[in-house]
Design a protein around this nucleic acid. Structure first.
Lengths: 275, 275
DNA sequence: TACGTTGTATTACATTTTAATACAACATAA
DNA sequence: TTATGTTGTATTAAAATGTAATACAACGTA
């Protein structure tokens, strides 16, 4: 599973073409942060240079600066850097004013209590999703319980739920631009098959997948829509065999996911925000 | 309550003196992100310039760059910026390899189920704390359920729990460097009184506070220590009147907090990590 | 339509970052 | 221990980047 996680891990911080108003130093700083992947808890400057494509001097200066700012810790004995707690504050900067998060939170808490299941809120980020709110109930792989994680749309119930509320051409575009990797034996990588699943999700009002990214995981997800009916995120409920069967999960958790997502959509509408 | 939250909100991104290896552009970029406080969901460039101390041109370039990188969203109609989902990925960069988080997660989940209470993990950040893992059970003010939030140590059970495991002079130093604000009528701001509470926490093995930052909130917290006995964080359980009384919370939740914190300390030790 | 305000684009200028290099610290093995 | 490689740190002259001033455009209000 560690392996299957790895492929979804790298944060995307690439040069979006030179522009007169573009401060490339800022990008380099974020490239350093993005260098910390699944496979490395701590990095030295040489390794950072290697992973970021910066030369040693640049790696040195940016690591140093991030350290001074408090976003990287430095182990004085090994002289290696690691991400620091303060990065959590940046998440708060986002979440604090997320009307989606605020609308979702109480409803996810409530829904999680029904069957003692974990409840997640995911939002779209291009061809991927990011979990923004997670309310764990049952124990699972640690990374699978942590917010901020990015997963692809093409092979996840959450992704299908969102795709199901889009015009077909838009959904197809996302799938075509996705890197279709067979994370586990059985991960769907055929665009036609994926679109078929998406259409099924559209008919049912929710999506479900089995063992696509994590072994034994049944994913159940329902879309959250804005005032225009456009998908802004999805409620995701993970369940695991053998405690749950696919049929049982689809019936019970599918309904729960839809109810919860609809309640959130409604609350968003009431709060009058577009987001 | 919104008010009491506000004072604890601003992220600390200040110039740590010029150094030859210091990239000031990076700092400016983070200053822009830090400009988004409690009182503003979105900001225009002029406002950003005002809040960051950058001039209009700089504010323009850094906002633009952060936008291109995906860390700021731009509302095309109002032309104002707002923090974007991608900031969540930075939190993941930290959490992914947090052995403290990994040790705490399953134990917090388990403990939260006992009395249906929210469970938090907080870590120290100078004179403040940052919530890194939050497992909400009961509904509460949205910001009080969101990870990444920073709160002061001097007037919180979580802070006292950590201070209680430090040498007295170190604890006093933290209190002296804290900005002692009376967030609510009754917030403790007298260093002597604070130290007295901390000593009491030391004797009891856990700390408790009432209505210090949030009205009606009873805070219960127990320290997590590393292999040297040094505090690395704390388990925090919030409870609210009238559902809980202070006495009842101290008795039941105090015990639970201690047990959970000890279990986490033990797991950390077993995992062989210093952190 | 006129006016203030706010966002955007363009420059010459100079400060900042760069990349090369040299040095120091550490780890490993002979 | 001494030698040897590797990795981290510090210092520069050179150059590229970011700066701040300014002008222009877009929007909202009266």
């Amino acid at each position: 599973m560690g392996k299957s996680e790895a492929t979804t891990a790298a944060m995307n911080v690439v040069a979006p073409a030179a522009h007169p108003l573009y401060v490339s130093s800022l990008e380099k700083g974020f490239r350093v942060l993005a260098a910390f992947g699944d496979d490395c808890a701590a990095l030295g400057v040489t390794e950072i240079a290697l992973r970021t494509g910066l030369d040693k001097s640049a790696a040195q200066r940016f690591s140093n600066t991030l350290h001074q700012l408090g976003f990287l810790e430095k182990d004085t004995s090994t002289r290696r850097y690691r991400p620091a707690r303060k990065l959590m504050e940046l998440a708060f900067t986002y979440l604090r004013h997320s009307s989606l998060g605020a609308a979702a939170m109480p409803r996810l808490i409530e829904a999680g209590a029904v069957y003692q299941t974990t409840m997640n809120l995911a939002e779209r980020e291009d061809t991927d999703l990011i979990y923004t709110v997670r309310i764990p109930h049952q124990k699972a792989a640690y990374v699978a319980t942590v917010p901020g994680r990015r997963i692809p749309m093409y092979c996840t119930a959450t992704g299908h739920a969102i795709l199901s509320q889009m015009p077909a051409d838009e959904a197809e575009d996302i799938i075509n631009r996705s890197i279709l990797t067979e994370h586990l034996p059985g991960t769907m990588t055929d665009p036609k098959e994926i679109m078929k699943t998406v259409r099924k999700a559209r008919r049912n009002g929710f999506a479900s997948t089995f063992a696509q990214l994590l072994p034994r995981e049944i994913g159940i997800a329902a879309p959250i829509v804005d005032y225009r009916g456009r998908p802004v995120g999805a409620v995701h409920i993970p369940a695991y065999t053998p405690r749950w069967t696919v049929a049982n999960a689809r019936q019970k958790l599918g309904t729960l996911a839809i109810e919860t997502a609809d309640a959130i959509s409604g609350a968003l509408l009431a709060s009058g925000q577009k987001f």
